[in-house]
């Protein structure tokens, strides 16, 4: 892969709520097969950027291309894109009236053409992939812990074997061990399923453990680079984010792991 293929390409994006401008002439690209972290302070529009790419919010100006199709103007391209991505919302966003297995089967059912036996089998495969026990399938989301709900949400996001996976704060609200497990899980899945991952996060551990490149939202634009590159930047927010006591600690602890990989 000498010339990495671009899977998401956002150019000249402008987002405005009333008179407050969130993004101004923002460019953002994701290459096939990489894990892209998105960071930024509160209110810099990380989640908004994610929602714009997946079509939940329409930006004021700019183009968004996913898998080569213009998803803002071309409904067919949007539909193709929808079929090739999975989204994990913050708390899983599982349908509370369906069991976990039924939740995983919703996208499959929507797609149609699969027998119930095969869907049941596939639901079990997805559960095992995200590290949930098989007996979680017939349970309702309210019977699961927060961490398990996230895994179940991930299983549903993976239901159609997407090429592209969006994660909104995947480790928020998990304990450090649970968060580390989830990071490992995402990395493993990304490698074995060949996923491209876009991950909005605050969690420095996750950034170090999982991401290949990071896009930092500062001054309504994106600064992109690897952790090492961003650490050399002079912007005050980036400095305090990557050079705070916590950041040094994480970087110090995680360095050997990075080497190993």
């Amino acid at each position: 892969m000498a010339q990495p293929e671009t899977i998401i390409e956002v150019t000249g994006l402008r987002t405005q709520f009333g008179r407050s401008v969130i993004h101004d002439d923002l460019d953002f690209t994701v290459r096939r097969g990489e894990v892209m972290g998105v960071v930024g302070g509160s209110g810099t529009g990380k989640s908004v950027l994610l929602k714009e790419i997946i079509g939940l919010i329409t930006p004021a100006a700019g183009t968004i291309r996913v898998l080569g199709g213009d998803v803002l103007n071309d409904e067919a391209a949007m539909q193709r894109a929808r079929e090739s991505w999975g989204v994990l919302f913050q708390d899983g966003a599982l349908f509370s009236s369906l069991t976990v297995a039924e939740n995983i089967q919703v996208p499959m059912r929507e797609r149609g053409g699969l027998s119930q036996t095969l869907m049941d089998d596939l639901a079990r495969v997805k559960l095992a992939l995200v590290g949930l026990p098989a007996d979680a399938g017939p349970k309702f989301p309210s019977e699961l812990s927060g961490g398990m709900r996230k895994r179940a949400g991930l299983a549903r996001a993976l239901a159609l074997d997407p090429a592209l996976l969006f994660l909104d704060e995947p480790t928020a609200g998990l304990d450090p061990i649970g968060a580390a497990d989830f990071d490992t899980l995402i990395r493993n899945l990304q490698q074995s399923l060949g996923l491209t991952v876009v991950m909005v996060t605050h969690d420095l551990d996750s950034l170090v453990a999982v991401t290949d490149r990071i896009s930092a939202l500062v001054d309504k634009k994106v600064v992109v680079g690897t952790i090492a590159e961003l650490m050399e930047q002079d912007h005050p927010w980036l400095r305090s984010y990557f050079h705070g006591a916590r950041a040094r600690q994480v970087a110090g602890m995680a360095a050997p792991n990075v080497e190993k990989r």
Binding site: R124, V125, A128, L129, A134, N188, Q191, S192
Partner: peptide, 10 residues
Amino acid sequence: TLLERVAEVE
């Protein structure tokens, strides 16, 4: 790799 992971399913 994918086969190995799926083969772990009970």
